[in-house]
Design a protein around this nucleic acid. Structure first.
Lengths: 339, 339
DNA sequence: ATACAGTCTGACACCGGTGTCATAATGTCG
DNA sequence: CGACATTATGACACCGGTGTCAGACTGTAT
C-alpha cells in the first residue's frame, strides 16, 4: 500500500498541487470539469489528506481539548459523550485533560497543555467554566473556548447551561406538593455555579409556598458521594428529623439513601429523598431516586459544535443558550405520612 | 508574545537549526559547550518545539488512541485514567474513540480514525482486545497496539491482564466457606474474554469443594445493569431460591440487590450477593458489595507505557503481564443461615 | 479591434521541524 | 609528522499540505 499524497494526486490528475488543494477545500475558482476530474482521482487512489501536514500549514491541530475536575464520573462520561458526538461530526478529535482547579499551577498546567498539543479550542466544564483566572489566560493567549454550565452571564463567549434554578425550584415544589415542609438541602461544591443556582431554586420554592427557610436544614456538600455521606449523617441526626431531603446531585442523594437504609429509616415512607442530574445511579438503586434530568450530553454537544463553528469562522455574536431541566419522578419521594 | 521557533533559537544561539534539533532530541555528536549554550537559549526564550511540525517530519502524531465499547461507564473512566497517566508522563495525548464491536463497519470506522488522526498507537480495551479481525487489520496496517484484559495468549504483542479466573475462584471460595452451596452465577458479555475466565474460576472453585455444578443456577448477562436486572429476575424466581449470587460485575450485582430489596428479600441474611470489579457503585449502595478489586487503572497504565516504549524503539520481545485480583469483603455476603 | 474585469491555474515560498550527507575540526597511532 | 578515524557542525532537501501572487484565459463593453 503506497502512500497517496497530494503530489501523487496532482501528477495523476495532471494538475498542480494547488488546484488539488482547492478542490480539497471547496475553494472557488476551479472549473467544474477540473473539479470533477480531481474528485475522480480522489476516489480512484483513495486519497485522504494528512491532517498533520494540514495542521502545520494552517497552524491548526483539529483537536479540541476538554478540561475537567469533577468528582462525578458519570457527569464526565456524559460530557465526553456529547463532546465526542460534535467532534466526530466535524472531523475533530477530542483530547481529555483532567486537572485540578485548586492546583497552584493550574495556569502552568494548561499552558503546558497548549504548547504541547496546539489545541484549536477548549471546552470548559464546571468548575473551570467559572474560573475567571483561567478564562483571562485563554483570552490573553487567544485560544477559543466554550463554557458548559457556567453562571457567568453577558461575557462575549460561547456558553451553554441548563436552568438549574428552575429545576431545583420544580423539584422542591414537587416535595412541597407532597406535603413536606421540613425539607433538608445538601449543597454542592462551592466552586460550581450550579451549587448556588440549585440552592436558590430551593429557597424560592419555599418562599413561594410560604415555608420558612431554616438554615439548620442545610448541609454543605461538594458533589462527591463521600461528602453526601457526611451531610446525611448531620441531617439524619437532626431532631426532629426532616421528612424530605433534597441533595444537589444524585451521588449525594444515594449516600443519604444508604445511611437511611442502614438506620432502618424507610424510604420513602418515613423519608423522601431527591437528587439532581439523573445520573445512572438514580435508577440503579432501590428505591429509584426522584431527580432532575439535566441534558448534559446535549449541552456539551452544542457547546463543542459552536466552538468548532467559531474556530472556522470567528463571528462577533457570542452564542449563549439555556436548556430546560426536567423533573423525573421515581420511588424515593412520597406524600408525607401524617402519623 | 512572538512565536519562538527553532529558527529563532538557532539564530539567537548562533548555531544551525540542525544543531538545535540535535540538542532537542538528545542526539550524540554535540559538544558539551554547544549543548549548554543551546539549552540556555531554550530557557531564555522559553522555547517549546511544535509537536505538529515534529509529527510531520517524523510521521508521528504523539497521540495514542483508546478504543472502547463497554456498557460500564466506570470501567471506561478507570481505563482512561490509567491511560492518561501514562500519556502525560511521556508527553503523549490521549484520543478517545468509542465504537461498536458488532458494527458492520468496525474496520472502516477504525480505518477512518487512522487516516484522519495518524495515531501512533492504539490501546484496545475489552471487547476489542480479543477481536482477531481488528488485530489482523492493525497488523496489516502496521499500527502498534496494546491489549488490555485480553485472553489471547502467546501472540507477539503487548498484553496486560488481570487474573480473572483466580479472582472468581477466590470469591466463589469465599461464598463456599460461608456455607453456601447454592450459588447462582451471572455471566458477562459473551464477547469479553473475562466472561469465560470468571465463569471458569467459579466452576473450578465448586469442583474443588465437591459442589455439583448446576446449569440452572447460571444466567446469561452482558455486564450492563439492565441485563443484570433480567438475570436477577430469573434467579430469584428459582425454586428453591439460591442462597448466594455471584454476578460477573458490580453493576449486575447491584441489579440483583435492587430486585431483592424490592421483593423484601433480606441481603445478606437471606441472600448473599457478590460482584466483580470493585466499581464505585459497590460501596455506594447498602449493603456494600463484596467484590473482586481489579487493577484496571494499573493495567491500562502499564499497557500504554509499554506501547509508548514500543513506539519509540520497537523491540522484539512481546511484553505480557498478569496482575493479581484481590478480594474485598463488604456487607453483602454473610454466612448462610440454617433456618 | 481594444480595454478591462473576472475566472482559472500553477510556480514558488512557507509552516517548523527532521534526515542525509558533505565538510571542518579534532584526536589517535605508527 | 602524515594517514586515518572520529567527532562536531551546517547546508539543503524533505515531510504534505496551504498562502501569495503572477499570468493565461475567458467574456463583455466600448
Amino acid at each position: 500500500m503506497k502512500k497517496v499524497t497530494i503530489n501523487s494526486v496532482a501528477e495523476y490528475a495532471g494538475v498542480s498541487k494547488k488546484t488539488v488543494s482547492r478542490v480539497l477545500n471547496n475553494e472557488p475558482n476551479v472549473s467544474p470539469a477540473t473539479r470533477e476530474k480531481v474528485l475522480k482521482v480522489f476516489e480512484e487512489l483513495n486519497y485522504k489528506p494528512n491532517p498533520i501536514a494540514r495542521g502545520l500549514a494552517q497552524n491548526r491541530s483539529f483537536i479540541i481539548g476538554c478540561l475537567y475536575d469533577n468528582p462525578s464520573k458519570s457527569y464526565i462520561t456524559r460530557v465526553q459523550s456529547g463532546a465526542l458526538e460534535a467532534c466526530q461530526k466535524h472531523s475533530y478529535n477530542l483530547l481529555i485533560h483532567p486537572c485540578e482547579l485548586r492546583g497552584q499551577d493550574l495556569i502552568d498546567n494548561v499552558d503546558q497543555l497548549l504548547t504541547t498539543s496546539r489545541l484549536d479550542g477548549i471546552v470548559l466544564t464546571p468548575p473551570f467554566s467559572d474560573s475567571n483566572e483561567l478564562i483571562a489566560f485563554l483570552k490573553q493567549r487567544n485560544i477559543p473556548y466554550a463554557r458548559v454550565a457556567s453562571a457567568i452571564e453577558g461575557d462575549d463567549s460561547i456558553s451553554i447551561r441548563s436552568n438549574d434554578e428552575q429545576g431545583a425550584f420544580e423539584l422542591t415544589e414537587h416535595l412541597i406538593n407532597l406535603g413536606h415542609t421540613e425539607i433538608a438541602f445538601i449543597k454542592g461544591h462551592p466552586d460550581h455555579s450550579a451549587t448556588e443556582n440549585r440552592f436558590s431554586g430551593y429557597q424560592k420554592a419555599l418562599a413561594k409556598h410560604g415555608i420558612e427557610y431554616r438554615e439548620r436544614l442545610v448541609a454543605e456538600g461538594n458533589f462527591s458521594y463521600h461528602s453526601g455521606a457526611d451531610s446525611a449523617k448531620a441531617i439524619l441526626d437532626l431532631e426532629p428529623r426532616p421528612t424530605a431531603v433534597f441533595a444537589s446531585n444524585d451521588y449525594m442523594a444515594a449516600a443519604v439513601l444508604k445511611l437511611a437504609t442502614q438506620r432502618e429509616i424507610k424510604v420513602p415512607e418515613q423519608l423522601s429523598i431527591a437528587g439532581f442530574d439523573n445520573a445512572p445511579i438514580a435508577r440503579h438503586i432501590w428505591p429509584g431516586l426522584t431527580t432532575i434530568a439535566q441534558p448534559v450530553e446535549e449541552m456539551t454537544r452544542i457547546a463543542v459544535e459552536e466552538l468548532i463553528k467559531h474556530i472556522s469562522q470567528p463571528q462577533e455574536a457570542p452564542f449563549q443558550q439555556v436548556l430546560e431541566a426536567k423533573l423525573i419522578t421515581r420511588e424515593s419521594t412520597k406524600a408525607r405520612s401524617d402519623s
